[in-house]
Amino acid sequence: MAAGGDHGSPDSYRSPLASRYASPEMCFVFSDRYKFRTWRQLWLWLAEAEQTLGLPITDEQIQEMKSNLENIDFKMAAEEEKRLRHDVMAHVHTFGHCCPKAAGIIHLGATSCYVGDNTDLIILRNALDLLLPKLARVISRLADFAKERASLPTLGFTHFQPAQLTTVGKRCCLWIQDLCMDLQNLKRVRDDLRFRGVKGTTGTQASFLQLFEGDDHKVEQLDKMVTEKAGFKRAFIITGQTYTRKVDIEVLSVLASLGASVHKICTDIRLLANLKEMEEPFEKQQIGSSAMPYKRNPMRSERCCSLARHLMTLVMDPLQTASVQWFERTLDDSANRRICLAEAFLTADTILNTLQNISEGLVVYPKVIERRIRQELPFMATENIIMAMVKAGGSRQDCHEKIRVLSQQAASVVKQEGGDNDLIERIQVDAYFSPIHSQLDHLLDPSSFTGRASQQVQRFLEEEVYPLLKPYESVMKVKAELCL
């Protein structure tokens, strides 16, 4: 049975990233139509530049190519590739079939990587351009969430054990800070992308030097003109047959890092959902379990974690691919890159769409948070109580021993009897502590235990987050809708 299948058929496997999760716009960027249309555009740009620099290419040939950029006979191309065992030459023939007058000058002087690699770089750039505003929107939604809850005390956790208090907004800023680093890295790697350009079979530009009869300047002009037509500021000066596969490492490393950030955020949300302090959106008709109707599973956060793990592992592909590119190139890269580049971007696209949807509907339960604080705060307040007693004339050592005994009794009630923490009640009825009984409410005010959390939130948002989001103001209103 021949390899390949009808990918629109229910009898043929289709990647869930495309069929179930990723956005239509990201799927289109990695589609065959987008790819092969870009090949034709690159052939047109090459012909236009070659004509401008004096090669015998007519206006009629150029116009014929322009008129057929979208006229792609995919069936013919597939048949040609089956016959020739070469995808680029299959599309040269297919393009030439609908451009008979231009057929002889299509791909003039070029090698397969002229269309293959340059198209990949265009796709990487455009895919990054799709991700950047999506990530900015996630940051914006979380920034709104953090600002609104900047002063809401909550129990902090280290080692997932109760620690000092923080605020809900401050905790959210930990998430935002990681995503801001990801946004900066995505922008950097996007701006650092260079075009492969017009380089020939081993990167020496020998074929173009021959076409222009040894004119170095025209060869350099050709490279520059096509690079500018493709919208790049610069091209690699040095290439082998391909652009260095280190570029793929750079791009997928940034995406993998984004995956790590999203995994951490969504894990926190899942843990908070278990504590009943916070939940992701839950639709009115949504079913959490087929057997347990009360369940409210954090399905979206779980999906993000599941896909983020996949995204983090994909960076190993370009690392290994770059390491086995012998001399000017081997074909070890080809099949692998067809999979890992598309999957990385479709996965990143999915987790950003999902995280935006989550961040637009996060639900906080202040009463649950308050109750958990009441359970733990008495123990945390013991040092403040000791200091207040010393100020009232008591002995630190005597007070410490009193607190120690009462704390152990209260802990026994919590752990052995399943009761509430009654340390404060014990202190309130103990005559030894009568000098500070009137101060206990103040000493137990949760806001006095959150330090500068709310001020940190305000400063972080104003100095770091809002300036970073400013270039994306025009796209901030787009909502994230999930079908599944």
Score class of each variant (00 low, 15 high):
residue 245 R to G: 01
residue 20 R to Q: 05
residue 446 P to Y: 03
residue 199 K to R: 05
residue 13 Y to C: 13
residue 132 L to C: 12
residue 209 L to F: 14
residue 138 V to Y: 03
residue 290 S to G: 01
residue 401 E to H: 09
residue 409 Q to G: 10
residue 326 W to I: 05
residue 167 T to P: 00
residue 46 L to G: 01
residue 429 V to I: 07
residue 464 E to R: 07
residue 332 D to A: 01
residue 284 K to S: 10
residue 47 A to C: 05
residue 161 Q to A: 10
residue 320 Q to E: 04
residue 460 F to R: 04
residue 185 N to C: 10
residue 113 C to G: 13
residue 6 D to V: 10
residue 204 T to E: 02
residue 448 S to W: 13
residue 177 Q to T: 14
residue 119 T to A: 12
residue 236 F to A: 12
residue 20 R to M: 03
residue 179 L to V: 13
residue 317 D to W: 04
residue 38 T to G: 00
residue 266 C to M: 13
residue 46 L to F: 15
residue 402 K to P: 05
residue 305 C to S: 14
residue 407 S to K: 01
residue 356 Q to G: 07
residue 188 R to K: 12
residue 131 L to P: 09
residue 249 I to C: 07
residue 484 L to Y: 11
residue 196 R to K: 11
residue 7 H to A: 08
residue 231 G to P: 01
residue 259 G to I: 01
residue 110 A to K: 00
residue 148 E to K: 02
residue 73 D to K: 03
residue 294 Y to V: 03
residue 149 R to F: 14
residue 315 V to P: 06
residue 413 V to T: 13
residue 336 N to V: 10
residue 164 Q to H: 10
residue 128 L to E: 03
residue 38 T to M: 07
residue 277 E to G: 01
residue 10 P to M: 12
residue 372 R to A: 08
residue 376 E to F: 12
residue 450 T to V: 11
residue 407 S to L: 02
residue 231 G to N: 12
residue 171 R to T: 00
residue 190 R to P: 02
residue 306 S to H: 00
residue 327 F to N: 05
residue 65 M to S: 09
residue 353 N to Q: 12
residue 477 K to R: 15
residue 432 Y to S: 11
residue 472 Y to M: 03
residue 149 R to Y: 15
residue 12 S to I: 15
residue 16 P to K: 12
residue 428 Q to L: 12
residue 172 C to S: 09
residue 351 I to W: 00
residue 126 N to E: 15
residue 23 S to D: 11
residue 177 Q to M: 11
residue 416 Q to W: 12
residue 389 M to F: 08
residue 401 E to Y: 11
residue 443 L to P: 00
residue 380 M to P: 01
residue 161 Q to G: 03
residue 167 T to A: 02
residue 110 A to V: 03
residue 296 R to Q: 15
residue 15 S to E: 11
residue 256 A to F: 01
residue 263 H to P: 02
residue 83 R to C: 09
residue 87 D to W: 11
residue 332 D to F: 02
residue 71 N to C: 05
residue 103 A to V: 10
residue 166 T to L: 11
residue 397 Q to A: 10
residue 178 D to G: 12
residue 462 E to L: 13
residue 207 S to A: 08
residue 186 L to F: 12
residue 461 L to S: 03
residue 364 V to L: 13
residue 429 V to S: 12
residue 463 E to D: 11
residue 13 Y to T: 10
residue 162 P to W: 03
residue 194 R to M: 04
residue 232 F to R: 01
residue 229 K to E: 03
residue 46 L to N: 13
residue 310 H to F: 05
residue 98 C to E: 08
residue 126 N to H: 11
residue 92 V to A: 11
residue 158 T to C: 04
residue 235 A to K: 06
residue 185 N to L: 10
residue 438 S to F: 11
residue 409 Q to A: 07
residue 110 A to R: 01
residue 483 C to E: 15
residue 463 E to Y: 10
residue 286 Q to M: 02
residue 162 P to E: 03
residue 279 E to M: 02
residue 454 S to D: 14
residue 332 D to S: 00
residue 172 C to V: 14
residue 284 K to F: 13
residue 333 D to N: 04
residue 352 L to C: 09
residue 237 I to G: 10
residue 303 R to P: 00
residue 131 L to Y: 03
residue 252 L to K: 02
residue 394 G to L: 05
residue 137 R to L: 12
residue 191 D to T: 09
residue 160 F to D: 03
residue 336 N to F: 01
residue 481 E to G: 15
residue 220 E to W: 11
residue 225 M to T: 14
residue 475 V to G: 13
residue 239 T to L: 04
residue 370 E to T: 12
residue 481 E to N: 14
residue 455 Q to R: 12
residue 52 T to Y: 12
residue 475 V to P: 15
residue 451 G to D: 03
residue 124 L to G: 03
residue 479 K to L: 15
residue 285 Q to H: 04
residue 245 R to W: 00
residue 330 T to H: 01
residue 325 Q to R: 04
residue 414 V to W: 11
residue 145 F to W: 10
residue 273 A to E: 13
residue 55 L to I: 10
residue 463 E to K: 14
residue 275 L to V: 07
residue 346 L to Y: 12
residue 45 W to V: 06
residue 420 D to R: 04
residue 2 A to P: 12
residue 200 G to V: 00
residue 227 T to I: 06
residue 377 L to R: 03
residue 14 R to I: 12
residue 170 K to I: 01
residue 85 R to K: 08
residue 232 F to N: 02
residue 311 L to F: 01
residue 187 K to V: 12
residue 450 T to C: 09
residue 271 L to T: 04
residue 298 P to D: 09
residue 204 T to W: 01
residue 414 V to R: 04
residue 86 H to K: 02
residue 75 K to N: 04
residue 139 I to R: 01
residue 16 P to Q: 15
residue 278 M to R: 03
residue 269 I to W: 11
residue 335 A to W: 04
residue 211 L to Y: 08
residue 378 P to M: 04
residue 421 N to S: 09
residue 430 D to G: 09
residue 173 C to P: 02
residue 425 E to T: 12
residue 316 M to G: 05
residue 287 I to E: 02
residue 325 Q to Y: 01
residue 55 L to C: 13
residue 341 L to V: 05
residue 17 L to R: 02
residue 422 D to F: 15
